[in-house]
Write a protein that binds this DNA or RNA. Sequence first.
DNA 1: TGGACTCTTGCTCATATGAGCACATTGCTC
DNA 2: GAGCAATGTGCTCATATGAGCAAGAGTCCA
Lengths: 314, 314
Amino acid sequence: MNETTELLAVRVAELYYEENKSQDEIGGLLGVTRWKVGRLLAQAKERGIVRIEIVHPRARRLGVERALCERFGLDDAVVVPVPASVTELGDRVAQAAADYLTALRPVPRTLGVSWGRTLDTIAGRLEQGWATGVTVVQINGGVSLNRRPGTAANTAATIAQRASGQVVLLPSPAILERIETRRAIEADRTVAGVLELAQGASAYLYSAGVADATSVLVDSGYLTAADVAELVRKGAVGDVVGRYIDANGNIADPGLDERTVGLGLDQLRAAKNAIFVVSGEAKHDVARAVVTSGLCTVLVTDEATALALLEGTV
Amino acid sequence: MNETTELLAVRVAELYYEENKSQDEIGGLLGVTRWKVGRLLAQAKERGIVRIEIVHPRARRLGVERALCERFGLDDAVVVPVPASVTELGDRVAQAAADYLTALRPVPRTLGVSWGRTLDTIAGRLEQGWATGVTVVQINGGVSLNRRPGTAANTAATIAQRASGQVVLLPSPAILERIETRRAIEADRTVAGVLELAQGASAYLYSAGVADATSVLVDSGYLTAADVAELVRKGAVGDVVGRYIDANGNIADPGLDERTVGLGLDQLRAAKNAIFVVSGEAKHDVARAVVTSGLCTVLVTDEATALALLEGTV
DNA sequence: TGGACTCTTGCTCATATGAGCACATTGCTC
DNA sequence: GAGCAATGTGCTCATATGAGCAAGAGTCCA
């Protein structure tokens, strides 16, 4: 399209979209047929001269969602556009996750949830009555040692309460100091029952942690910043339900993993409905590791993360 | 429109504009009639949920243009959107002014032009052959004392040359030290002839200067920064064709005006086609003074200036 | 509780637009 | 310069959408 045609396309687009003139009227004004006007409008759209954007806190990016599903073999994806002016990125994504959960059919009878800041925000965004009779089970440990007492329990409890359901907490630390202690605690009837319930959940809802000192595992006292630095040196890009993974989605430190209580990654991979919620540039690496290694079936994320995932592969 | 309807409108807009589904298809997907889909789309547009923007260096803002004409009684207005990322604001506006001049019908036989940076940029943006046989006459003095020798002459000459026309320069300083000298020079046959031609021009093309030390009149040595500061204290907001005006469009310093050579503001007000080109926040005050006091019939400006003009009145 | 008024909805018919086709134009190669 | 391929154009007919209207729904007040 040469410069003259391009300028004509600009004028046509202005008259059509800003002046609300019909293609026939525009043709008369500019001395071209209405068929040519239509073609110029199509070209204006193709070349980005006309930009149509859906601007709303609940808006989605359906095209990007489909591209993610095709690329990564996901069952579903939810992508939310977040304008640069919005500072609470996680809020928009959490809202979208809450919307998705509310709309999920069939309603999951048992929902396994992790804990962390993202999950807490999602819990806060769920409406009372988002479902009825959902049993919410914790899938990673964290009741004890937690410096913010009750957050993990609160998250699961809130989600359950707002679905008029029950909460089943995992009464165990997230990470134990000795493998023997982890085995003993998992063998205990109380913990074993919760883990069995967790393994049988119809859906899982979880996020990821960044492999740095901001991790809630550091915050909670399970790991030190030095521990995490060592994990990074072993290739860790982040943690999923308390388990550190590398860029290929494999366990970064098997020894640490053996001491970690909660649902295993194999069980997450085998899940029929694993809803992964993630946002922010800091989590791009772990997000990529999760979606490329089959650790989720549904992804809820922001547009920038989605586009980064789509650009980075092949 | 309550929250449920608003969310429905978002979904409808996404399916229509991003998925290119017909209103009938969308109705089937969402369980509403195609007529309701149409109404939801209209609401989405009204409430800014759908934003359609023309993004191109040559794009205009036709609605804003019409509003300016209605508000200020202009014969025409040209408003160009300039994205925040574009640093050469004046370039876009200068291009629009060049476009306007080229499209002007009837072609002006005699075109009076001022000189300054904006006019120089416009001259550079005009294409060879933008018109034929146009006599370009300088309407404000400035050949002598100019520290950038020839700029004023170059501007007029370039415009004339690219219209295969003649240039008529005003061989006089912009401002003289004594009123008597100004009268003498204007009485001289050479200068008088040019001024007569200038007064009889079919169209005028000019910009405005900011009332501060960046003025080309300071740059050129006619005024000192102290002179301009004094003018500001007398209420000057800027200069038009070398004449300082206040917020109401009146001469700020009659004494200085008496020593200024060139087309008078009364003559500009009486013109049938006075094309005023202005951009940038620094010039908002003088722009307002010009459009509200009948000193132009056509305004070419950037979108931010246009909106500032529309907001500031009444 | 009923009537009046306002708002919303579904529909008919008119208008607007697009898909696909046949023909025209343009550009390239021999 | 001719032939061929690619691109562009105008058109017919089908599809999509909107304007205006009548009917239904909802709200408010006496």
